[in-house]
Design a protein around this nucleic acid. Sequence first.
DNA 1: TATGAATGAGTTTTCATTCAT
DNA 2: CATGAATGAAAACTCATTCAT
Lengths: 204, 204, 204, 204
Amino acid sequence: MDNKRELIFKATEKIIASKGLQGLSMQQIANEAGVAAGTIYRYFKDKDELIGELRKNVLRVVASHILKDSGEGTLEQRFIRVWFNIVDFGRQRTPANLSYEQYIHLPGIDSDPHQTFENATFSELHVLFEEGKDAGVFHSLQNKTLFAISLEPAVALGRNIRRGQLKYDKAELELACSLCWQTINKQDNQIKLSNLTNKERSGQ
Amino acid sequence: MDNKRELIFKATEKIIASKGLQGLSMQQIANEAGVAAGTIYRYFKDKDELIGELRKNVLRVVASHILKDSGEGTLEQRFIRVWFNIVDFGRQRTPANLSYEQYIHLPGIDSDPHQTFENATFSELHVLFEEGKDAGVFHSLQNKTLFAISLEPAVALGRNIRRGQLKYDKAELELACSLCWQTINKQDNQIKLSNLTNKERSGQ
Amino acid sequence: MDNKRELIFKATEKIIASKGLQGLSMQQIANEAGVAAGTIYRYFKDKDELIGELRKNVLRVVASHILKDSGEGTLEQRFIRVWFNIVDFGRQRTPANLSYEQYIHLPGIDSDPHQTFENATFSELHVLFEEGKDAGVFHSLQNKTLFAISLEPAVALGRNIRRGQLKYDKAELELACSLCWQTINKQDNQIKLSNLTNKERSGQ
Amino acid sequence: MDNKRELIFKATEKIIASKGLQGLSMQQIANEAGVAAGTIYRYFKDKDELIGELRKNVLRVVASHILKDSGEGTLEQRFIRVWFNIVDFGRQRTPANLSYEQYIHLPGIDSDPHQTFENATFSELHVLFEEGKDAGVFHSLQNKTLFAISLEPAVALGRNIRRGQLKYDKAELELACSLCWQTINKQDNQIKLSNLTNKERSGQ
DNA sequence: TATGAATGAGTTTTCATTCAT
DNA sequence: CATGAATGAAAACTCATTCAT
């Protein structure tokens, strides 16, 4: 019955999403969660642990959205699915997404335990890239580089749409996606239209 | 004679770069700047204003690095220059770069004044993309989208290298750059090798 | 069946002995005693009562050690026995002794109920002194004064040895004891060697 | 101008004297001293440092009272003076005396830095005992032992009087003092009456 | 009777801000 | 203009005590 713990988690995530990590007090969390301040300390040693646990949790949630159905179908189908998963998740104003963005650029993020956890959580992406390279389809680049040129655009697009800096345009996104796909392909593999259109993705 | 103001600016930037926005006290800034705590209030209404001003300043510094020589030469040459400017700046562990990353994902970033300022600062990029589209060379996409698919990768690559998550590899970066160039081009415009190699950029 | 109560007592004594009265939480006591925190309140109204009861208990334990065999033999033999009982008990690092020292100098010690209890507990000492005075052997001084000049030294010596500020030296202690004996005697009653040496006390 | 620091010191001493170390909050100290809570932290790193500094200070005050005029006159005169200094100081209900008693039996008191400081502060007593032994007048015992048998009684008597457990009786004290003097003397050196009576001590 | 989760008042400590010098 | 001592509100955290189970 991790009811209270979950309550505290959700409350913290919500506050971080709206006010950032700066304006985050234990009292606020307690109020939002509807528990006493002292109660938080039954579930988390201190604020640092709470933030740390939340970070891991958020990362898991992000990964589960991003990697949804990422194992089925052809390489191309899997790529497209992940690409749009990223955009769709990034567009959302969910606490998970908003608080995620608070974490990733924090100092200390490059420390070993964080990196290890992050790599493990997103290991399926590595699998995808490795398979593409083994099949001789993708460029022989480091996975981080492949991510940077093909999926980082999706991250940016989702964020821009959410922030209202870019208007949502299905056709534009599909073009962007196919360009990203081509960019990591050795040969000029045009994306099959059917893969783009026959998805069951929920457009806006 | 904005000597003191500059001192305070640099001190703040330095602390943010190393410890983040969390652990940032006015006393620390005063110590680092070599002034009295009260003095800061002669130059800035309060902490928020100081942070806000610094944010703008950092943005200007970033822009000046990113846009260096971005107006000279062919479209292709200008793109390559900006692309590598971004990577090279992102690789650095300078206070400007490190504190920049602290700012960009802060809540409140999508407020109007910030957006307006940001757009103005990076207007040259818009010029570049508009020219490309007008010349019928670039895809007819919104500028933010063009940025996302062609330059956001450079941002990510620079950051990854700085964090030690990606090893610096000149050849790999040049391939990545040419792929980013192709991705925004309507026709399959291969990058001219001379443009990549004859640059006066200082590789690592 | 005061099993739980005894458990709580011992646990409290142990913690006080090692960490003092400062760092003493009900949770700690509960953990050490192996009971739930709430259980303590079945046996003691509140923390104050627990501490108070413990104080009395410790006093009883101290008295039982100090007054061991204090009723048998000549005045001289009884004095020597008490004197060494005090030193020997004071030297020990037992919870009873260590927690005793935490109590004696607490404010509120001079309140009536405490005094009455203390006097009752150590009444045998009063008997000893009264008998000495009645027999015309001891100086006609108040009992507290007799204690101060003849037994307080034993208290101090035991404490010093325990704290490592004085090295244990049997001969030195025996000399000190005989000097303390002489000091309360009207006539120059040298202690009989046999009384010092034929004891069954276990020296270090 | 250590005005504030002194204010905080006195306030803390006063509270410790009346309520002990237990009931000692920074807020209380601030109130008593008439400063803001935060001000305390300009003068002391944290509560521990404040307590520690106070302890040293109290020890110095105690020493200055105890050792008053302890260097002048014959061995006997010096002993008598110290003996009565101890009783007279111990009888007082001054914050210095009362808070002193709170400190001496705290756990951690036997740590090296504390011991070193204490020995240095009371070094004059060691000188007194050493001189007595060198002159062949005092028993060849460790200084701590000499203190225990001759001066510890004075400590106890002062405390007892203050607590109302012993009524003040000049004649009784003078007898006690002379007995203490004899107890550390090898030969049966009766105290010279003139030394006892011609003192300028202020009896109650 | 026993439990231990929950409480919330109280504790220590920090820090943006003010203001007399 | 510049200082830095002082402030006091607010933060993180503790803990004696209660109460539903």
